[in-house]
């Protein structure tokens, strides 16, 4: 069997779990440790931590979060964001990560992928590709949360990173990310059918049905999900501790508002939909 993986994606800023739109405009949702524990206990297949501002601040808080999480959570942890050198990768692996996701450093120097995969094993190296659809319909690869154009076209870049030793590719549609409009299915399918390594779809899901589409039509091997799950957890948390309200935009959280387009669903809600659709998954 080939079972589809459901991967909660946790965007981290300082000590907080945040969520943005188009990878920008971050809102604070809560403490990543609480969400991580909740996802583990509810059957997440892996967790994906993305340091959203790694290049702007130091990353010690993320390493603390990873170490704390890895001591009590026994599923794979992937960490991405601002990893530029072999030492950076070694440090987050030592902190307890199992895999790392690289983007900017790979674009700047593609042989970094080869160096890293030879050093740590292909299966440890995930290459993240942030895609924006150009006016001519081609998908272009970006870096720095969709801010900088890399000069690369997505499909040829995906093939190149596979050839250089990436064990997995996570493809983010910057256009769809945080909008709740559903995944960019053409983009996901294009990438998934162009490579022989697993592809993780990310960006745009607002309901379990979007996930079904990403697998059925997009041929994704795994899906990374943020809003749907996070808002579901927030609904279930009764109390919040207050020490995270220093950073980011917390107004909406205090008001208890959940974006309209999002249909909060738990991991078991999502699994139930996948099972109903005959999509192989764990459990």
């Amino acid at each position: 069997m080939k079972n589809i993986r459901i991967i909660p994606r946790l965007d981290i800023k300082g000590p907080n779990l945040v969520k943005g739109i188009h990878l920008e405009g971050l809102r604070v949702l809560g403490k990543p440790e609480d969400f991580a524990r909740c996802y583990y206990e509810n059957g997440a297949d892996e967790l994906f931590f993305q340091d959203t501002v790694a290049s702007l601040y130091d990353r010690n808080s993320l390493q603390d979060i990873i170490t704390k999480t890895a001591k009590e959570i026994f599923i794979p942890l992937t960490v991405g964001g601002g990893l530029r050198t072999i030492d950076d990768i070694r440090n987050v692996l030592r902190a307890g990560a199992d895999k790392v996701a690289i983007n900017t450093a790979a674009v700047k120097n593609p042989y970094f992928i080869r160096e890293a995969s030879l050093k740590f094993g292909s299966s440890t190296i995930v290459v993240a590709i942030e895609a924006i659809k150009g006016s001519d319909g081609r998908y272009l690869a970006f870096t720095d949360n969709g801010r900088e154009y890399s000069g690369l076209e997505v499909v040829s870049w995906a093939r190149k990173v596979e050839e250089l030793g990436a064990g997995e590719i996570v493809i983010t549609s910057v256009d769809k990310e945080g909008t709740g409009e559903g995944y960019d299915l053409d983009l996901i399918r294009l990438v998934s059918e162009s490579v022989t390594v697993p592809v993780i779809a990310h960006g745009g899901a607002s309901c379990p049905e979007n996930i079904v589409q990403a697998i059925r039509y997009g041929k994704a091997d795994a899906v990374a999900i943020a809003s749907i799950l996070h808002y579901s957890v927030m609904k279930s948390f009764v109390t919040y501790s207050c020490d995270y309200r220093e950073e980011g935009n917390t107004t909406f959280l205090n008001a208890g508002k959940i974006p309209k387009m999002i249909k909060p669903s738990s991991l078991s809600d999502i699994r139930a939909v996948l099972i109903k659709e005959n999509i192989p998954t764990r459990f």
Partner: peptide
């Protein structure tokens, strides 16, 4: 897809 990555 190779590697196999996931639960089985």
């Amino acid at each position: 897809k190779v590697p196999q990555i996931g639960w089985n």
